[in-house]
Design a protein around this nucleic acid. Structure first.
Length: 210
DNA sequence: ACATTAAGTGATT
DNA sequence: AATCACTTAATGT
């Protein structure tokens, strides 16, 4: 586990902090599709990703879902902090997009380190900033109904986190993630295929324009 | 061969 | 962009 820490976070954190992380962190492996955190659930720990990817989504009152973003190796979930400060309950659902290895850090520790380690503070601030920017982008495309841009970003992100330019999903499932109808996705995908950005097959989409 | 499920299309709002 | 209605294509039994 120390090797994993060194490899992914060694360049970020100083030795004493790495020691503390190792002492207090709990290693966890999750399989694809497993729900790491659901809406309303109490948050007791924050994740540090070693490998794999997590899909972060929100749900409306009718149970409809909407993808917010993916987190990958070297990332943490910025929502953890805002949830800790507020209700302590999760506002989001986190599902493993692929098999994932991560380390769970108790939230008391993450607060304590905030004042004791500047590298930790920097790390938290940075990830907060990155996430916020991402969210702003999502809000932009949502507000202006640019479904084509959202779809293409989604495909690229998905190809990125799975390290595979082939995406195994039906148009229906994609539509569900982006909270729109299958017909819309089919049309946009068809158009993107004509533009040479992707290749379409049954149950799979190949992203070319990476 | 038939039923089921995924994907493509035109028309309408 | 969403929805409806309908067609076509791919797959499973």
């Amino acid at each position: 586990m120390r090797e994993l820490l060194e490899r992914h976070y060694g360049y970020l954190f100083e030795e004493p902090l790495l020691d503390e992380i190792e002492a207090v962190g709990v290693c966890k492996k999750v399989k694809q599709g497993e729900i790491l955190m659901d809406i309303g659930q109490r948050i007791t720990a924050m994740p540090l990703l070693f490998s794999g990817a997590i899909k972060i989504m929100r749900e409306d009152e009718h149970g409809d879902e909407l993808i917010l973003y993916f987190i990958e190796k070297g990332d943490t979930c910025a929502m953890t902090f805002s949830c800790c400060m507020g209700t302590g309950k999760s506002e989001i659902r986190a599902v493993a997009e692929v098999d994932t290895e991560l380390l769970m850090i108790p939230i008391e520790k993450m607060e304590e380190w905030l004042s004791r380690y500047s590298s930790w503070r920097q790390f938290i601030l940075d990830s907060y900033h990155t996430r916020l920017s991402e969210l702003m982008e999502t809000v932009d495309t949502l507000a202006f109904m640019k479904m084509d841009e959202r779809l293409f970003k989604y495909l690229k992100d998905k190809a990125m986190v799975t390290h595979d330019d082939m995406i195994y999903a039906t148009h229906q499932q994609v539509a569900h993630d982006l909270h729109t109808s299958r017909v819309v996705i089919s049309r946009l995908l068809k158009q993107m295929e004509k533009e040479g950005k992707i290749e379409l097959h049954r149950n799979q989409i190949k992203v070319l324009d990476l």
